[in-house]
Design a protein around this nucleic acid. Structure first.
Length: 468
DNA sequence: CCCCCTTTGAAGCAT
DNA sequence: ATGCTTCAAAGGGGG
């Protein structure tokens, strides 16, 4: 592999450790997840309650159980860092090969061994394949990746991983990406099967779904004939809300095949080596149709709910001038990071599983679930985020995150919670809770768990407890 | 109506 | 190099 640099040597060894270690964790996760996703949520909920109301670890043990227990913080941090590092390194060139051969999360692995022994596509691979390249023929993609595998001289991490951590999940394993299915309006369309059905099982037949037709991803919540509304390569993440990762701008018209186009764009560097040039379109910030990328959010769109239909005539001068101002400079949103992608995908599921609707509380749960994900699962989102950034970069070469700084750096638009002097101590008890000491407290800078709001938890969970 | 909350990650800026 | 700040999504809650 080209990218084996000297610096990665240490990580390599470490990763070997990680993998074997991960096996245990993976199994444990499977066991617990097999038991019930609801229980998982219940654990999260109850642990949240405990976090806020008590120091007892009565419920946390369940979560602690299902986690790869002794993932030390340092280990976790290292793995996390390495993971991010890996993702970053891949930014430079697509699929040069995993910087860390031991790492399973280079996405090719999923593509290389997506088939179950019976020949059908494994849930994981199928899901990921389709969510990555919704309009690509899965089988073709597999062939290509196989071809890519052939090209690779050294064994793909896929094999390393697949030998140790089977890509094929247990049939009952609730894959974190299964909510993709639920985004097919299952939660919201009366008559649709309940969300607890296995993601990859056809709700009607009860048998595993065959590889999906290449034209439409099953995860798009599209009613038949609405292909043209596929907004974005990652639009599958939020179809249930009809809102793509990058919201479509005004006009109401959507290009029939933006997904394919953007997917190609995002993968251009990858595809260019595999596909004829005509299949790798040039990158413009605007499509040839003149339709801006969904990331461009014009004021109209941003305020469409409040102004478009009713209030447009009553909008104030101030708003008008503001709008015009912004019209000149469309707001290009930041690409979503891995966690944001994960949140988009999982939010509906979490909301559906509990009565909570407060995003703050939901996000807490999501944050914990995020940490509970296996590295492979997280890696998928890191990879997606990486592609998202890449695509974003290609579409908006001159764009900078700084462009979205409202008041400029240092002039806070939103004030983050000031860390009170004694705050850490105040909540340090949280770290006594095994739930909260779940590994992924990534570098204490974020101290995600330290910022647990007793208030939020206290207000949220009583409701949950009532609901259950 | 607008901002806060809450999460993680990415990126930019200041030191 | 490190640390801080802002923004990305989401939607209820509150001023």
């Amino acid at each position: 592999m080209p990218q084996l640099n000297g610096g990665g040597g240490d990580d390599l060894g470490a990763n070997d450790e990680l993998i074997s270690f991960k096996d245990e964790g993976e199994q444990e996760e499977k066991i617990s997840e097999n038991s019930s996703a609801e229980r998982d949520l219940a654990d999260v909920k109850s642990s949240l309650v405990n976090e806020s109301e008590t120091n007892q670890n009565s419920s946390s043990d369940s979560e602690a159980e299902r986690r790869p227990p002794p993932r030390s913080e340092s280990f976790r941090d290292k793995s996390r860092e390495s993971l991010e590092e890996a993702a970053k390194r891949q930014d430079g060139g697509l699929f040069k090969g995993p910087p860390y051969p031991g790492y399973p999360f280079i996405m090719i692995p999923d593509l290389t061994g997506p088939y179950l022994p019976n020949g059908s596509l494994s849930p994981t691979a199928r899901t990921y394949l389709q969510m990555k390249w919704p309009l690509l023929d899965v089988q073709a993609g597999s062939l290509q990746s196989r071809q890519a595998l052939k090209d690779a001289r050294s064994p793909s991490p896929a094999h390393i991983v697949s030998n140790k951590v089977p890509v094929v999940q247990h049939p009952h394993h609730v894959h974190p990406l299964t909510p993709l299915i639920t985004y097919s309006n299952e939660h919201f369309t009366p008559g649709n099967p309940p969300p607890h059905l296995p993601a990859d099982v056809d709700p009607k037949t009860g048998i595993p779904r065959p590889p999906h037709p290449p034209d439409i991803s099953p995860y798009y919540p599209l009613s038949p004939g609405t292909v043209g509304q596929i907004p974005h390569p990652l639009g599958w993440l939020v179809p249930q809300q009809g809102q793509p990762v990058y919201p479509i701008t005004t006009g109401g018209f959507r290009h029939p095949y933006p997904t394919a186009l953007t997917v190609n764009a995002s993968m251009s560097s990858f595809l260019s080596s595999r596909f004829p040039p005509h299949m790798v379109p040039p990158h413009h910030s605007l499509h040839t149709t003149g339709i801006p990328h969904p990331a461009i959010v014009t004021p109209t769109v941003k305020q469409e709910s409040s102004q478009n239909d009713v209030g447009s005539l009553h909008s104030s001068k101030h708003q008008d001038s503001k709008k015009e101002e912004e019209k000149k400079k469309p707001h290009i949103k930041k690409p979503l990071n891995a966690f944001m992608l994960y949140m988009k995908e999982m939010r509906a599921k979490v909301v559906a599983e509990c009565t909570l609707k407060e995003s703050a509380a939901i996000n807490q749960i999501l944050g914990r679930r995020w940490h509970a994900l296996s590295r492979e699962e997280q890696a998928k989102y890191y990879e997606l985020a990486r592609k998202e950034r890449q695509l974003h970069m290609q579409l908006y070469p001159g764009w900078s995150a700084r462009d979205n700084y409202v008041g400029g750096y240092g002039k806070k638009k939103k004030r983050k919670r000031d860390k009170q002097p004694g705050e850490t101590n105040e909540h340090s008890e949280c770290f006594l809770n095994p739930c909260l000491s779940l590994p992924p407290i990534t570098g204490e800078k974020k101290s995600a768990f330290a910022t647990y709001k007793v208030k939020a938890a206290a207000s949220a969970h009583p409701l949950q407890m009532e609901a259950y």
